[in-house]
Amino acid sequence: MTTALADHVQESTQTAGSRPFGAALLVAGVDPTRSVSTPKRGTDEADGTGHLFEVEPGGTPYGWQAVGIGDATSDLRERLEDVLETTPTDELTASDGVSMALGALAKTDNEPNPSAYECLTIGRGSATARRSTAEIADVLENVAS
């Protein structure tokens, strides 16, 4: 899916100087045909493996373990890389990932505002969850302490 999207975006740039989409896109999903066995989670049969891709405005796709786009992108990516260097990703839970991402975001923002953030976790089937502003505020409070 990401390749098809990136190809479409890239084809739209064939006109000189044209970047009709004008923004990077984040594409996330779960491959239901793959499974991951970890000490923290145990062995699951075909539990699905999460994937995260960025598609640049020119149509180039990149795969990531964690990424942010927008203001302060380079600082945010540095902070995420620092955390990932010391944390085995195969042992992260969705809650760990939310804390890591919001913590890195808060450190790049001079005045973290929970109502300015959106947080969504994607799992198998209908396991998608959008965090409320109150939940985001709780996570930010915990990572700040």
Rank of each mutant, 00 (worst) to 15 (best):
T3W: 11
T3Q: 15
A4R: 14
A4T: 15
A4D: 14
A6S: 14
D7I: 07
D7L: 14
Q10Y: 09
E11T: 14
E11S: 15
E11V: 11
T13F: 05
T13C: 15
Q14W: 11
T15M: 13
A16P: 13
R19N: 07
R19A: 10
P20D: 13
F21R: 08
F21G: 04
F21T: 02
G22V: 07
A24V: 00
L25Y: 14
L25D: 01
G29Y: 02
G29V: 03
G29L: 01
D31V: 13
D31E: 15
P32L: 03
P32Q: 03
R34C: 14
V36P: 05
S37E: 12
P39T: 01
R41W: 09
G42F: 02
T43M: 10
D44R: 14
E45G: 06
A46S: 12
G48Y: 01
H51L: 10
F53R: 01
E54D: 04
E56L: 10
P57L: 08
P57G: 06
G58T: 08
G58D: 15
G59Y: 03
P61H: 05
Y62K: 03
Y62Q: 02
G63M: 10
W64H: 11
Q65L: 14
A66E: 01
G68R: 00
G68E: 07
I69H: 04
I69L: 09
T73D: 04
S74G: 04
S74F: 04
E81G: 07
L84E: 01
L84C: 02
E85F: 09
E85S: 10
T87F: 05
P88L: 07
D90P: 00
E91N: 15
T93V: 05
S95R: 15
V98D: 01
V98K: 03
M100N: 00
A104H: 00
L105S: 11
T108P: 05
E111L: 10
P112H: 02
N113H: 12
N113D: 15
S115N: 15
A116K: 11
A116V: 12
Y117G: 02
Y117C: 06
Y117T: 05
Y117Q: 04
C119G: 09
C119E: 08
L120Y: 11
T121V: 09
G123Q: 09
R124G: 10
R124M: 09
A127C: 07
A127K: 06
R130G: 13
T133K: 11
D138K: 13
D138W: 00
V139Q: 01
E141A: 15
V143P: 00
V143Q: 02
A144C: 01
S145W: 08
S145A: 08
